[in-house]
Nucleic acid binder design. Structure first.
Lengths: 196, 196, 196, 196
DNA sequence: ACTGGCGGGACAACCCGTTTTT
DNA sequence: AAAAACGGGTTGTCCCGCCAGT
C-alpha cells in the first residue's frame, strides 16, 4: 500500500466509527479530526467531500462488521447449521458491534440525510450482498437435500435479515441484549422448520 | 384551546414530518420555518430549544401513526384475528406512513444524535406502550382460551414489533413494499402457530 | 400616586440596578423582567423604548445615590467641615453603592452605547447638579469667611468630583476600598488647604 | 511574522478601536468585520471567542496608548520633571486618545460586561503596570534626593492615576478638555509639594 | 381601557464544509 | 500536505408591535 493510500485508509478508519455513531449530519469534519492528528487539508486532499468520506466510512464499517460476523461461521458443513451459526454470531459479537456504534446498515439506512445519495446506493448493495450470501447458503442446502426444496430462499433470507435488524434496533434502543437473543432463537426455530 | 396552545400545536404539526424525515441534526429550525408561515420568535416563544421541539414532534408523530394503525383494528373479537389485523394494518397504511417519513420509532431510535436525551426516553416509552398493547391482546386471548396458555405474551409481542420494524426498514430503504408484506404474512403464520 | 404611576415606579426600581450593573446593551428587557413579576407588555405600556426606560433608570439611580450621600451631610455648619463630610460620605456608603452596581454617573458616562442619546444628556445634567451643590457650599463658605476668597469654587468642585470618580473606578476595579479612602483623605487635605 | 500572525495582528488592530469605543457587548463581530475586508471565518480561525478577541484588543489599545503617553517622557532627568511631563502628556495626547475612543483602562474597567472575565484581569494588570512605572520614578527620585523620602510612592502613584482617570472621564463626558488640564495642573502642584 | 404575553424577524455568536494559498 | 481564509449556515436572543381577554 502506497503512502497516499495509507493516509486515506487511516482517515477512513478514524472517521468510520464517528459516522456510525453520530450519523452524517451529526458528524462534523472537526469531530473526525479531533484526537486523530489529522488536518482538514489531509481530509480534503483525499476526499472530495464529506459525503464521499462518509460513503467510504460506511463501506469500511460494513466490511468490518461483516468480517466479524462471518468469521465465526464455518465455510462448509450443513446449511442449516451454518444459518443458525450465522444468526448466533450476531449475539456473540453484539458487544463489539455496539462499541462501533451499532450495525452500519441499520444506522445508514435510517440516517435520513442520505436519501438520494451515493451512501443509500451502497447500503442497498450491502443488503443485497448479505441477502445473496444467505440465499446461496440455502440454495446449496437445497441442492444437497439438507433444506426443503419448496422454500423460497429469497424470502427466507429477507426474513432472516429483517429479524436481525429489527432485533438489533430494539436491543440497542432499549439496552436489552435479550431482545436480540430472542430473535436469534426465533430464527433458529425457523431454520428447524425448513430442515429436511 | 387558547391561542398560545393552538400555535404550539401548529408548530408541532409542521415540525413533526420534517424531523421524522430528516432526523434531529439533519433538521434546522429554518427548515421547519420554511413554507409554514412560522417565525423563530414564535417557535422559541413556545419551545425552549430545538430538542424540546423535536421531543414534542416525536410524540406527535407517534400518536399520529398509532391512531392510523390502531384505528383499523377492531376493539373486540378474537385475539388472533386482532393480531393479524394489527400486522396487516401496517401494510394497509404503509403509503401514508411513508408519506410522513416512515415509522417515527424506527427513525428516532436510530437517529444517533439523541443518545442520552429526553427523546430517547420517549422512544422507549412508546415501544413499551406498543408492546403492552400487544401483550394485553394476547393475555385476553389466553384468558378466553383463544391462544395457547404456555406462550410468552411478552416475547411474542417483542417478536411482533421487531418483525414490523425490521421490515419497515427494509421496505423503505430498498423501496420494496413487498418486504413488509413478507413480514406481515410471517407474523400471520406465527399467530396461527399460537392459536388454540 | 395613581396605580399607573406606581407600576411605572416599580418597573424603574427593578430596572435601575440591572442597568447600573450591566450597562445599556448588556441589559436585555428580559433581564429586567426576570424575578420581578413584570411582563413585556407592562414595560412597553409604560415606556416607549428600552432607552427611555434606561434613562428613567439612570435618574432613579442618581437620585438614590445622591440621597444616600447627601443625607449624611449636615445642611448647616462650617463649609469646610461639610465638604470633608461629603467626601467622607462616599467612603461610608461605598458598600451600599457597590451593591447597587457602583456610581451611576461613572457607569453611565463610560457606557459607550449611549453616545448621542438622552442618557448622555441626563448624565451631564447630573454632574452639573453635583458640581453646583459643591460650588454653592464653597461660595457660602467664602461669603462667611470660612474659605479663602481667591479660590475658584468651580475648579475645586471639579477636582473634588474627579477625585471621587477616579477613586471609585479604581476601588471597584481593583476591589480595594482603600483606594477610595486615599482619595478621601487627599480631598480632606485639599479642603484644609483652602480653609481660612 | 508569519502569515497567520500577521492576520491576527490585523484583526486586532481593526477590532481594537471598535471595542474601545463601543464596549464589549455593544460591539458585534459584524461591526468589526464591516469595512475591514475581514470575514467571520478568519476571525474565528484566529480567536476562539469574542471575548478572547476583546482581550487581545484591550492589550493592543493599552500598549498603543502607553506608547503614545510615555514616548514624550524623557527616560532620564529629574524625577519631578518626569512626573510633570508624564501628567502633561495626557493633555498633549488627549485628542489622539479621544480618537481611539478614550482611555482603554477607563473604558474596560467600567464596561460592566467583563466582570469575572479575562479582560478584567488584564485591566488590573495594566493598572498595576502603570502604577509601578510611576512608583519607580518616585523611588528613583527619592534615592537621588530629588523627592522627599517620607512620601509614600504607592499612594502618590495611585493619586496620580485616579486624578488622570477621573479627569479623562469628566473631559470626555462633558466634552471639556479643560477639565483634564485642571487635573494636570493639580498633579503638577502635587509634585511640587513633594519636591525636596 | 389596559395589560399580559404571543409573535415577528433582524441579528447575535459561533461553526460548518470547502477552496485557496503557501 | 498543511494552514488559513471564506462566507453562508447554525441555534438561539433581542427589542418591540400588537392582539386577545379582562
Amino acid at each position: 500500500m502506497g503512502r497516499a493510500k495509507k493516509t486515506r485508509e487511516y482517515i477512513i478508519a478514524k472517521a468510520a466509527p464517528v459516522f456510525n455513531r453520530q450519523g452524517f449530519s451529526g458528524t462534523s469534519i472537526t469531530d473526525i479530526l479531533e484526537g486523530s492528528g489529522l488536518t482538514k487539508g489531509s481530509v480534503y486532499g483525499n476526499f472530495s467531500s464529506k459525503e464521499e468520506l462518509a460513503a467510504a466510512a460506511f463501506e469500511y464499517n460494513f466490511k468490518r462488521i461483516s468480517t466479524l460476523i462471518f468469521s465465526s461461521v464455518e465455510r462448509d458443513g450443513n446449511a442449516c447449521d451454518r444459518l443458525v451459526a450465522l444468526a448466533g454470531s450476531y449475539g456473540v459479537n453484539f458487544d463489539q458491534v455496539s462499541e462501533l456504534g451499532g450495525c452500519p446498515i441499520l444506522n445508514a439506512a435510517t440516517d435520513s440525510d442520505d436519501m438520494n445519495s451515493l451512501i443509500r446506493e451502497k447500503v442497498n448493495r450491502s443488503i443485497e450482498l448479505w441477502k445473496k450470501t444467505i440465499v446461496s447458503i440455502i440454495r446449496k442446502g437445497q441442492e444437497l437435500g439438507e433444506i426443503k426444496a419448496d422454500i423460497s430462499a429469497e424470502d427466507f433470507a429477507l426474513l432472516f435479515i429483517l429479524n436481525i435488524e429489527g432485533a438489533l434496533m430494539l436491543a440497542k434502543t432499549m439496552d436489552e441484549k435479550r431482545h436480540l437473543e430472542l430473535a436469534i432463537s426465533h430464527i433458529t426455530s425457523l431454520v428447524d422448520g425448513i430442515r429436511k
